[in-house]
Design a protein around this nucleic acid. Sequence first.
DNA 1: TTTCGGCGACTTTTT
DNA 2: GTCGCCGAAA
Length: 687
Amino acid sequence: MDILAGLNPEQIEAVTLPHHSALILAGAGSGKTRVLTSRIAYLIQKQGVSPHEILAVTFTNKAAKEMTARISAMLPINIRGMWIGTFHGLCNRMLRAHHREAGLPETFQIMDSADQLAMVKRIIKSLNLDDEKYPPKQLQHFINGQKEEGLRPHDVSVYDTFTRTQQEIFSAYEAQCNREGVVDFAELLLRSFELLKRNEILREHYQARFKHLLIDEFQDTNRLQYQWLKLLAGKNAAIFAVGDDDQSIYAFRGADTGNMRELERDFHIRDIIKLEQNYRSHGNILDAANALIRHNASRLGKNLWTSDARGEKLRFYQAPTDLQEAEYIVEEIRALHSDGVPLNDIALLYRSNAQSRVLEHALFNASLSYRVYGGLRFFERQEIKHALAYLRLVHNPDDDGALLRVINFPARGIGAKSIESLQADAHGSSLWSKARGKSRKLDEFANLIESMRQACSGAPLPETVETVIGMSGLKSHYLHEKDGEDRLENLDELVNAAATFESEGDPLVEFLSHAALEAGERQSGEGTDAVQLMTVHSAKGLEFHAVFVSGLEEGLFPHSNSRNEAGGIEEERRLMYVALTRARRRLYLSCAQSRMLHGQTNYNIPSRFLKEIPEELVQIIGIAAFGETPAPVSGKKSPWRIGANVFHPKFGEGVVLACEGIDQVQVNFRRAGTKWLALEYANLIAI
DNA sequence: TTTCGGCGACTTTTT
DNA sequence: GTCGCCGAAA
């Protein structure tokens, strides 16, 4: 098979680049993954590079799997020796191999975010700090932020007592992690980074080994990830970074597009290859996306084009209420479906999860099947986390987090009091080490764990899992619980997962790491023909025949919180760009004049992003006449209608919330807030 | 120890 | 509007 067949000139240039570092700016739908995998195939097949010398890194397990699958389809080689995976997966692999040099116990465990938060809470309590003043979530964010900057507690610059306390919590948190032999996600990266930095032998070993580092979604890398890559690359490796600054929508979690410019500098990149030919969308859709993103000042600059037809115009619908918006969408979905578009080729996108409810409701009433992405993943479910906690205890009873999770689940009469006194006692050592000889119930628990350990020692993984689920009492607990059937099914599924799990070393350790690193699918009911509902964030990387972008209102999209953040609006605009470029053939944009949010009705003006799309690309499907808005609460003859957009010389733009009689209106001003105005004096202008 | 009710939060998300 | 957490009552 010819690797280059069917590639366009720019793609071929990227795939066949000589051995020096490169940055590939790959626009939406420009065949990014294809270029990445073709590059790997080209290196191996045409350049005689050994799979052993290649490291390819992605952000998500899904992307890593897809890359692996595509490469195996292209090359008849065993890709085992290749390091393909997520940043965290590869760091985990490295740390397992060199746990001693990294200062970790051989069978260290990985905490997911929820585990981490629980530990932060414990630390704050144990330091007798007020969790109102030191919200655990915020501290978790602080700790992760520091680690992603490569900072340890002693590196934190302390300039006030608040930061001092944060640093102390960070410090205590680290001590606790070390004591329990657990690491959080950020720690995987930081440890791996420090290992390479300090250990010259290992660093040189890996630098000599990996001649090619390929990075997917480079715009999403944070500082630490970039530093890790830089260290791994050394002087001789060639970096092949693929990314799109216009699709950077994760700055809020530390992604730094500045890394693209740093890469250019650090690796003396001569030319940036731009992949601008789009194979996904019709012309009008691309023109709209291009016009929108041009409003962003900080870009590397790129313009998508297609050889495809212009296609249909975009369709815009402004509904009086969110309910009517949903009804309109449902009607259009019906029409599309009867025209033969499969439901699962239709996506309904929104900015925030809270918006899905109205849409779900309308779809449900119309008996259209739908699937909502988001929600709990398999390994995050309560019953699964409980079972995993027992497994962790079997493996390492000093894991306080696991012990606390299940010491009284199923209930065995060990309440808050007993746990508190145990914690007071343990001070500096593990809870397990102090569990015996305090009370009959605690002894019974200790005996239970001990006998579970014995029952599991030497047993194969699936049997261990089954034993633990049985002996712990989880099974009988859910058997007696009224809605426990699903949970029991999930526990069975966990045994299945263990049975099909392939490991190279200690099966239990690897299974537990797998559970933390790969929390499983976020959706259920795969395979059925159903409309896809998701946030714009989760739609990244996907494409659909028809896409509805709903809730295009100021305050929602762009989200109001983004207005005060530096670069916030630009990130929202990139998000909008991602939303638009998901559509292949048909793109609907909609908004509502009034919307139920957080239990109260809001009146918002249409999103500024709508104005940034050239009119001639858009077909306006009946802007709801103001006459159709719900009648004003009172005042039959008020000159203003609820929901009308107005301008006040002093307060600026706003929306009419209510009318009182003929001369009073309540207006929600964007800047000045909500005010009652006497029309006799206020000079309101319609906009 | 469990359960129930009140209160506050509430953008996006992967590992 | 709804979820989750915390504190008080059963």
